[in-house]
């Protein structure tokens, strides 16, 4: 247990230090949120209706684009071979690495979301639900993305391949996340069905992601 905790802290420290790129995700998120009004126009009514979708797409893109750092850096300096060779359960190692990665890159997105939602003139109720769904949904994106990062770990230029491979699997997360965020405007009771489905998809991703990523890492390294 101690080993996993020190791994978690190590990952966090690496992500937060200079060159770790933890804040790049939030910056990219901000860029997406500010670009969309330029494309659709400054109509606040339209923007407030699109708000949850914009925030979700921004979070999805910045999560997927930040994934290449998950295993890549550790592979380059040989740390990944040591971790795999340490005899610890690789699935648990992946879970710890993903959770640390999410804490460094996913959690800032969730925290920034209410701030960015002001740009989009979203009503308070939708801000609340959007932040809640992002909190539940972004770990799923990171867990699914870990599969792509593990599959492309041996590649020099796997960057663009990861989103292509992972996007189909992210569709349910996006559908239930946006549906739960927006449904509260029409009918407060309509929130729970998509929200619970989103939570189910997240739990599922938390199981499938580490198993598949560990299998991919074993196949990619020996």
């Amino acid at each position: 247990m101690n080993a996993y905790r020190s791994l978690f802290l190590r990952e966090l420290r690496i992500a937060v230090r200079v060159g770790g790129g933890a804040l790049m995700g939030v910056l990219f998120f901000l860029i997406v949120v500010t670009t969309i009004p330029f494309a659709v126009g400054p109509d606040l009514n339209l923007l407030s209706r699109l708000g949850p979708a914009v925030l979700w797409i921004g979070a999805l893109l910045s999560t997927l684009l930040g994934l290449d750092r998950l295993f890549e850096a550790d592979r380059e300096d040989g740390a990944l071979d040591l971790i795999v060779g340490s005899g610890r359960m690789l699935e648990l190692v992946v879970i710890v690495k993903v959770l640390a990665h999410w804490t460094a890159t996913g959690l800032p997105l969730v925290i920034a979301a209410p701030l960015f939602s002001l740009f989009l003139a979203m009503p308070p109720a939708t801000i609340g639900t959007t932040v809640l769904t992002l909190l539940v949904g972004t770990p799923a994106l990171t867990f699914l993305g870990a599969i792509g990062a593990a599959l492309t770990v041996s590649l020099r230029r796997g960057g663009l391949l990861v989103p292509i491979l992972i996007l189909p699997f992210a569709i349910p997360v996006l559908i239930f996340g946006v549906a739960a965020s927006t449904s509260v405007l029409l009918d407060p009771a309509g929130f729970f069905t998509p929200f619970l489905l989103l939570a189910a998809v997240s739990l599922m991703a938390g199981v499938v992601g580490p198993i598949a990523a560990a299998a991919a890492l074993r196949g990619g390294l020996d």
Binding site: L151, F169, I171, P172, F176, V201, A216, G219, G220
Partner: peptide
């Protein structure tokens, strides 16, 4: 790598279809 991705797809396709 492809085999892992295919099997992940097999698990996920019903979920995607449902969603």
């Amino acid at each position: 790598a492809a085999a892992v991705l295919i099997l992940v797809g097999t698990v996920n396709l019903p979920i995607i279809k449902f969603s």
